[in-house]
Design a binder for these strands. Structure first.
Lengths: 162, 162
DNA sequence: GAAGCCTTGTCAGGAATCCTTACGACAAGG
DNA sequence: CCTTGTCGTAAGGATTCCTGACAAGGCTTC
């Protein structure tokens, strides 16, 4: 009588990934709401996620974020208006502009990364440090395998490890 | 010389979850495109994800999918027009209707679940059976902890296991 | 260096998705 | 009944993202 009466019908992994992702983002957004960067909307995240110190071209950002240049342009327009990013001419190509974080933008990025780290630590307390670390390790491997260009941080780490 | 020159700055778990989720969905959608159910759009997924044999009310579906009743209604309208679902009066409440899968809808759901199982098996070959199984186990625990109502399959499994 | 072609970013228009507000129909408790 | 709340729907709007087209600048080839 132990086995289930019907086939178990495993829930798709995508459903589990989605629940985990959305739950984590909910915690993040709630905390961001209460911060001094409450004027940032979810859409703006792709910029803070991908743009680093040296700046990035719009086309590259759009490619990484898997959106069109037009959409990326609108998002950047917003962030420029809010004072988080600026466009500077690309010294290597007079057509292009580098999207750079302003000091305010860098503060926001650091704050956001800090919030994410807090949420992860909280989940470690909730589900076990080792499980979350194993989860991260596996996900890093998957991300590096499926979409390495979207996780440049990992490449550096890999290089350091080799 | 082993430690990194700068702080590692861990990539947020949300970014990793996002890459894994989108990669998996990409594989799924590509295969769905080539199937007989190519007229299904990503938005329609929430219905097949949550509606089971006995049917479900619109309000409940909207709550599970974290969207408004109006949005859910539009999606259901679409699927009714495509012949995947039907609305039947709820015998327990004359205001309500139960959203049920038609035979075609059940075929599509089974096909979709099969595709997801295939993708997962493929990832097992790519990243190791044990890692993917551990990933699933941890994600199931997280999903049950963060949003149990969105993964009813797990409740049943838990009950059977207890 | 001129012609042709590619890339960069932008503009214009539209499609898709989801929301807020409001409402009629029905249910449940007094 | 009458009030209150829930179920589903209608109408209109906001957001997000897309397709198509374009000028400006770079790149290749002759």
């Amino acid at each position: 009588m132990t086995p289930a009466p019907k086939k178990p019908a495993r829930i798709p992994l995508t459903g589990l990934l989605d629940v985990a992702l959305e739950s984590m983002l909910d915690e993040f957004r709630e905390e961001l709401e209460g911060s001094e960067f409450a004027d940032l909307r979810p859409t703006h995240g792709c910029v803070f996620r991908f743009v680093r110190d040296h700046g990035m071209r719009l086309t590259k950002l759009a490619e990484l974020a898997s959106i069109t240049k037009q959409s990326a342009g609108e998002i950047v327009d917003d962030l420029v208006a809010l004072g988080y990013v600026k466009r500077i001419p690309d010294p290597e190509d007079r057509r292009a502009k580098l999207i750079c974080l302003t000091p305010k933008g860098e503060e926001a990025q650091a704050h956001g990364f800090g919030l994410f780290a807090e949420v992860e630590k909280r989940w470690m307390g909730r589900y076990g440090r080792e499980k979350i670390e194993a989860l991260r390790a596996t996900l890093e491997e998957i991300a590096a395998g499926e979409r390495p260009e979207a996780v440049p941080e990992l490449e550096r780490t890999e290089l350091a490890g080799v």
